[in-house]
Computed example of a mutant assay.
Amino acid sequence: MAGDMSLDREALTCPTDPDQQLVILTAEPGTPCHEGLRFLRSGTAALSPVGSGPTGEQPQRVVVG
Results as ranks from 00 to 15, higher is better:
Met1Lys: 13
Ala2His: 12
Gly3Phe: 03
Asp4Pro: 01
Met5His: 07
Ser6Val: 12
Asp8Met: 14
Arg9Met: 08
Arg9Gly: 06
Arg9Pro: 03
Leu12Pro: 00
Thr13Phe: 08
Thr13Lys: 14
Pro15Thr: 10
Asp17Ala: 08
Pro18Val: 00
Pro18Gly: 03
Pro18Cys: 01
Gln20Met: 11
Leu22Asp: 12
Val23Thr: 14
Val23Pro: 02
Ile24Asn: 00
Leu25Asn: 03
Leu25Met: 14
Ala27Phe: 04
Ala27Ile: 05
Glu28Ile: 14
Pro29Ser: 02
Pro29Trp: 04
Pro29Phe: 01
Gly30Gln: 04
Pro32Trp: 00
Pro32Asn: 04
Pro32Cys: 01
Pro32Leu: 01
Cys33Asp: 13
Cys33Ala: 14
His34Thr: 01
His34Asp: 04
Glu35Trp: 02
Glu35Met: 07
Leu37Tyr: 00
Phe39Arg: 03
Leu40Gln: 05
Arg41Tyr: 08
Gly43Ser: 09
Gly43Ala: 07
Gly43Asn: 15
Thr44Ile: 09
Ala45Val: 06
Ala46Lys: 12
Ala46Cys: 07
Leu47Gln: 11
Leu47Phe: 09
Leu47His: 15
Ser48Tyr: 09
Ser48His: 10
Val50Gly: 07
Glu57Asp: 08
Glu57Trp: 10
Glu57Val: 02
Glu57Gln: 14
Gln60Trp: 13
Gln60Met: 14
Val63Arg: 12
Gly65Asp: 08
Gly65Trp: 01
